[in-house]
């Protein structure tokens, strides 16, 4: 097995877009798609998940580097980008219907000692009213955030790998 960090070709980073097919809630998937186009499979393992929870845990457990992208109702203008620390992620289990929310899943990973050593968490602010329509396109403000975020993540990965 390649050494995960200290090698000339380190193990690929795991990038996970979290979303659903409902309007702006899809933005995590859109960013994942944009990154899959820019990054080779040897550099990044790009996944799209339809909910956080234990499936997310499965995909990040024991990995050294992971990048998560999700839509969030942060109160900021739609399309605003946030790069936040796990500690700043509000626990919102009460509103979540099936098992674990993102914050709980990551807290569980930390409790179990399987949280990636390097975890970047990006949130794109959306208006929750635009996250209910099946099949709807991203609204312009959120769509405009996809490429800049993909570029920022690429830049950061290159900086980390150098």
């Amino acid at each position: 097995m390649r050494h995960p960090l200290f090698a000339f070709d380190p193990a690929p980073v795991t990038i996970i877009g979290i979303g659903s097919p409902f309007g702006d809630d899809r933005v995590g998937w859109s960013v994942a798609d944009a990154l899959a186009e820019r990054l080779s499979a040897s550099k990044a393992r790009v996944l799209k998940l339809d909910r956080p929870g234990t499936a997310l845990l499965d995909e990040i457990a024991g990995r050294h580097r992971a990048v998560l992208v999700d839509a969030a109702a942060t109160g900021a203008a739609a399309g605003t980008l946030h790069c936040i620390a796990l500690e700043d992620l509000p626990a919102t289990s009460a509103g979540s219907s099936h098992g674990l929310g993102l914050a709980e899943a990551l807290q569980l990973a930390r409790s179990l000692g399987v949280l990636p050593a390097e975890l970047c968490l990006y949130l794109v602010s959306i208006d929750p009213d635009n996250a209910r329509l099946p099949g709807a396109d991203l609204t312009p403000a959120v769509a405009a955030a996809v490429e800049p975020l993909a570029a920022a993540i690429c830049k950061r990965l290159v900086a980390c790998a150098a």
Partner: peptide
């Protein structure tokens, strides 16, 4: 919560 329990009961949750 489960994450709080997992600190003490890690083997069981795993």
């Amino acid at each position: 919560s489960a994450p709080a329990m997992a600190v003490q009961y890690g083997a069981e949750v795993r």
